[in-house]
C-alpha cells in the first residue's frame, strides 16, 4: 500500500477517464491526445534526466530512431503494433545505452550539445538515404494489434487505448522508481555529484541508467508517433527543432510531477494548433511568445499553477 500515493491515484483516475472518453472523443481531439501522449512520453524521459540536472537538446535522435526503426519494420512486412513499438523502443534504448558511455561523462551545456550533435548525424544519414525517401520520408501502413486489424476510425481508437495503457504503465513505473534509493539519487546528483560518490554511489552510473531510460521512452514516443501519423520524415522526426520542442514541453510541464508532462504536451499541441488556425503566417511568433511568457512568469511550469492553488487553499485566513 505504501506505493499508492496521490499521484498514482490521480494518474489512475486520468487513465480511466481517458480510457472511457476514447469512445466518445471527436476524432481530432483524440488525434491531438495521441500526439500529446507520444510527446509527453518523450518529455517524461527528459524530466527524469532533468532531475539529475541534465537537459538534452538532441532527443529527437531517439525519437527519430524509434520512429524509423518501427517504420522500417513495416517495409519488410511486419505490422503488429506491439512488435513495432517494442522494436522502436528497444532500438532507441540500445542506441542510448551505447552513446551513454560517452555522454555520461559530460554535464551542463556540453551534455545538451553533444546530444544535439549526435541527433544531427542521424538527420544527415536519413537525408542521404534515398531508399528511405530522403527528406520525403515514407508512409507507414495501418498497424494490426495481435491479429486484430481495425479499419477507419477504429484504427485511431485502438491505437489510443494501446498508447494509453503503455504510457500509464511507464508513467506510474517512473513515479514509483523515483521513490526508490536509486531514483532518489537523481536530485542528489543534481545537487552535488562528488558527495554522491563519497557515499559510495557512481554518479556516472546513475546518469547512464536515466539516460537509457530517456532513450527508451523517446523511442517509444517516436514509434507511437510513426503509427499515429502514418508517416515518418526527418524534418518532423529527427531535426534539432524537434528536440527543441521536447525541451519546450518539459519546461512547460515543470519538474514537479510525472503526469504534468502529458498536460504540457497537450498545451503545446493546443497552442500550436490554434496559432496555425488564427495566425497562419505568424504562428511561430505565438509559439515563441508563449514560451517566453512561460519562462518569465511560470518558472516552474504549469504544474506550479496547481501547487499555487493548493498552497492558497491551505493558507490560514487572517
Amino acid at each position: 500500500m505504501r506505493y499508492i500515493d496521490k499521484t498514482v491515484v490521480g494518474l489512475t483516475i486520468a487513465f480511466l477517464v481517458l480510457f472511457i472518453a476514447d469512445f466518445f472523443m471527436a476524432e481530432w481531439v483524440r488525434f491531438i491526445g495521441l500526439q500529446s501522449l507520444a510527446r509527453g512520453a518523450v518529455a517524461l524521459g527528459l524530466l527524469v534526466l532533468w532531475r539529475t540536472g541534465l537537459v538534452s537538446f538532441g532527443h529527437a535522435l531517439y525519437f527519430g530512431f524509434g520512429a524509423y526503426a518501427a517504420a522500417m519494420l513495416t517495409l519488410i512486412g511486419y505490422h503488429d503494433a506491439f512488435l513495432l513499438v517494442f522494436a522502436g523502443t528497444l532500438a532507441a534504448g540500445v542506441l542510448a545505452y551505447l552513446l551513454g558511455f560517452l555522454l555520461r561523462r559530460y554535464r551542463a551545456i556540453f551534455f545538451a550539445l553533444l546530444n544535439m550533435a549526435f541527433s544531427m548525424i542521424l538527420y544527415g544519414v536519413i537525408v542521404k538515404t534515398e531508399e528511405l525517401g530522403s527528406t520525403d520520408g515514407f508512409s507507414v501502413l495501418t498497424p494490426t494489434f495481435l491479429g486484430y486489424a481495425p479499419q477507419g476510425e477504429a484504427v485511431q481508437t485502438t491505437l489510443f487505448i494501446f498508447t494509453l495503457v503503455f504510457t500509464y504503465i511507464i508513467t506510474v513505473g517512473v513515479h514509483l522508481y523515483m521513490k526508490t534509493t536509486l531514483g532518489g539519487m537523481s536530485m542528489a546528483v543534481r545537487e552535488n555529484e562528488i558527495r554522491v560518490e563519497y557515499l559510495g554511489y557512481s554518479a556516472e552510473k546513475v546518469i547512464h541508467v536515466k539516460y537509457v531510460f530517456s532513450g527508451l521512452v523517446a523511442g517509444f514516443g517516436g514509434a507511437i508517433m510513426a503509427l499515429a501519423i502514418g508517416q515518418v520524415d526527418p524534418d518532423s522526426m529527427a531535426n534539432w527543432t524537434v528536440s527543441g520542442e521536447f525541451v519546450f514541453i518539459t519546461i512547460l510541464s515543470g519538474i514537479g510531477n510525472v503526469g504534468a508532462t502529458y498536460i504540457g504536451a497537450l498545451v503545446f499541441e493546443l497552442i500550436r494548433t490554434y496559432a496555425f488556425e488564427y495566425a497562419p503566417q505568424f504562428w511561430q511568433f505565438i509559439l515563441g511568445g508563449s514560451l517566453l511568457a512561460i519562462i518569465m512568469f511560470l518558472p516552474d511550469g504549469i504544474w506550479s499553477l496547481f501547487s499555487r492553488l493548493r498552497r492558497s487553499e491551505k493558507a490560514p485566513s487572517p
Binding site: 527543441g244 519546450f248 503566417q281 509559439l287 511568445g289 519562462i295
Partner: peptide
C-alpha cells in the same frame, strides 16, 4: 537556451 530559442521563433516572424 530555450529562451533564446523562443526569441528566435519570435524574431523569425
Amino acid at each position: 537556451v530555450l529562451a533564446t530559442f523562443a526569441m528566435f521563433l519570435v524574431l523569425e516572424d
